[in-house]
Design a protein around this nucleic acid. Structure first.
Lengths: 119, 119
DNA sequence: ATCGTTTATCGTAGATGTACGATAATAAGG
DNA sequence: CCTTATTATCGTACATCTACGATAAACGAT
């Protein structure tokens, strides 16, 4: 039985896993995630998705409509955010429902602390 | 009377100032600082400077020696870090003593929280 | 003044980023 | 099957990034 509202659950990350990464891996991962945030449009997208209530799905089209960019440009930004590990998309019929990777902000915060301080 | 050890003090930032920024300004600033960290070499430089003891100065040449890059390439990364607000340099004779902007990590952490959550 | 040290800047080449319109791909509905 | 809706990808143009060697600029010391 298919639910009426499609909520995006998917993958999540755990800040505790950071301790197992090598210092070198930490730096690379931090640089990668930072690249994801290195454009105001992408900050806005992550912000949007991070503040969505769980029961409210966020479809690609909603994101496009909320931004003053062409659909193809938004799609490119979404791709960067997916590749750098900030968001994930679940296909729902002809649509794609996007959400942030679970706990990614806390993960990023922990990664900064571990990468910039310590050792 | 000139001190024997040259310590880099300079500017600092206060996370409390973030509350005064507009949301739009927050996003731009976060994107900018993120761009600074968006390369492993620059993460390493910030890490080096952030972990230096106060009495130990960090001259440009030390940074160059610690990295497997040409001097001109390191200089470019330092420029990016300066422009994005992570570090500052003080001229000391023929040398330049670099250090992080005071409290910049805490500022960045606070900026992430304010920009991605809230409102 | 000249020299050596240190750092920034220039010039260049190749890769990547950013924006757009056009087109392809996928799925639902008739 | 054909159309519509939705999203990804392609092709393109221009800007920015990243690396290097070469050169310039600033300063201390001889």
């Amino acid at each position: 039985m298919k639910p009426v509202t499609f909520t995006c659950k998917g993958n999540s990350v755990d800040p505790n896993e950071i301790g197992q990464l090598s210092v070198e891996a930490c730096k690379k991962r931090l640089a990668e995630l930072s690249k994801g945030l290195a454009h105001p449009t992408r900050v806005e997208i992550v912000r949007m998705l991070e503040n969505k209530p769980l029961e409210e799905r966020c479809v690609c089209g909603d994101i496009v409509n909320a931004l003053p960019l062409a659909q193809s440009s938004v799609s490119q930004h979404l791709k960067v955010l997916k590749e750098t590990g900030w968001i994930q998309g679940e296909i729902d019929g002809p649509r794609v429902c996007y959400c942030t990777v679970g706990g990614i902000m806390e993960y990023y915060l922990a990664l900064i602390k571990r990468s910039l301080k310590g050792e």
